[in-house]
């Protein structure tokens, strides 16, 4: 029975493997040790000349050897590839502290985001968005809202007028949308109206000729003052957080009665006004021809004020200057 020096073969294989520099070399090693010109193949050719018993015995031995070579090459190759990649990975380094994308914000204007957030809060309790014109008639801005010509409240705001008979103006409050909406729609009404309002002020740190309000109006058969309270407390909790404290103090608006201002308690313990509200005055409902069985409530909230409170923005001018350093922060 021929005796192949197995140890010698395996030792030479180890040597070959240790000299590998490229993964492709493993194919040649396989060929050299397992291919048709390999020592192993030579030995296999001898098998037919052996006795049955030897054939069986030697054949088994050769098969075992072949398996061992195969697994040695396979595992070495795997290891080689793994080592290569690991070495490559160890050499690679990324400095993730670099921020190539300068803009951290949403690209949306902060006033849009705040308006959207407020709209969503009211939309979640059944309010739809209504729209009304910004250049308005004095009737919609004042008279229909129970503020006739002689009313002192008419002089409180510095109204921007568009014609000399003072019949058209830039709306001073989004409450005009209450009238526009009710003129065109029958009750029940559950609407919010975000939008621009105008006053005759120069743009500076605390004033702007343009700012935004969101008007809310609910008119239905059984709405009362407690519903007004519940609705606006829901809003302050959704916007400022579950633990915000809210209080209602009496106020005056020509188009609501009773009227109130809503204050929230800030971190420093002070109370801040955030909105005005009230039960819609019966005269307003009469002006739009609603029947007496309907009543409801309305409120108006300043969007800039909400944004300034929440984000500690100190200058109202920031909102309208469009300085990219400001825009990018939100």
């Amino acid at each position: 029975m021929p005796e192949l020096n197995l140890d010698k073969i395996l030792a030479s294989l180890d040597l070959r493997i240790s000299e590998v520099t490229l993964p492709d070399e493993y194919d040649q090693i396989s060929k050299d040790y397992l291919g048709k010109d390999s020592l192993l193949a030579e030995e296999r050719k001898k098998l037919p000349t052996l006795s049955n018993e030897d054939k069986k015995k030697y054949g088994k031995k050769l098969t075992e050897l072949s398996k061992e070579i195969e697994s040695k090459i396979e595992s070495s190759k795997k290891q080689f590839i793994l080592d290569t990649f690991q070495k490559k990975e160890k050499e690679e380094f990324t400095d993730i502290s670099i921020d190539w994308n300068r803009n951290e914000g949403s690209y949306k204007h902060i006033l849009s985001s705040v308006m959207d957030e407020v709209v969503n809060i009211f939309s979640s309790i059944g309010y739809e968005v209504a729209y009304g014109p910004e250049a308005e008639t004095s009737w919609h801005n004042f008279d229909a809202l129970n503020t006739p010509d002689w009313h002192p409240a008419r002089y409180e705001s510095d109204t921007i007028y568009l014609n000399s008979d003072l019949e058209t103006l830039l709306r001073t409050q989004t409450s005009t949308v209450q009238i526009r909406h009710m003129e065109q729609n029958d009750p029940p009404v559950y609407i919010v109206a975000p939008g621009r309002v105008f006053r005759s002020d120069q743009l500076d740190a605390t004033h702007s000729p343009v700012f935004h309000q969101l008007e809310g109006l609910a008119i239905d058969k059984n709405l009362s003052f407690t519903d007004l309270k519940g609705t606006l407390e829901y809003f302050t909790k959704e916007f400022f957080g579950e633990n915000i404290e809210t209080k209602f103090i009496p106020h005056f608006f020509p188009f609501t009665e009773p009227s109130a201002e809503v204050l929230v308690k800030w971190n420093d313990g002070s109370w801040l006004e955030i909105l005005g509200c009230g039960m819609v005055d019966p005269n307003v409902l009469e002006n739009v021809g609603y029947s007496k069985e309907y009543k409801g409530f309305a409120w108006g909230v300043g969007i800039e004020r909400l944004a300034m409170l929440r984000y500690k923005i100190d200058h109202i001018k920031n909102f309208y200057e469009n300085d990219i350093r400001f825009l990018e922060q939100f």
């Binding site: 709209v119 939309s123 968005v129 209504a130 559950y190 975000p194 609910a218 709405l223 407690t226 309270k229």
Partner: peptide, 22 residues
């Protein structure tokens, strides 16, 4: 006292429908 009144929350009739304009 306004703050002595209870609070109730009515739900409108357009749940999560803001409308085409918005």
């Amino acid at each position: 006292g306004f703050n002595n009144f209870k609070s109730t929350l009515p739900i409108g009739n357009n749940l999560n429908q803001v409308g085409n304009y918005w």
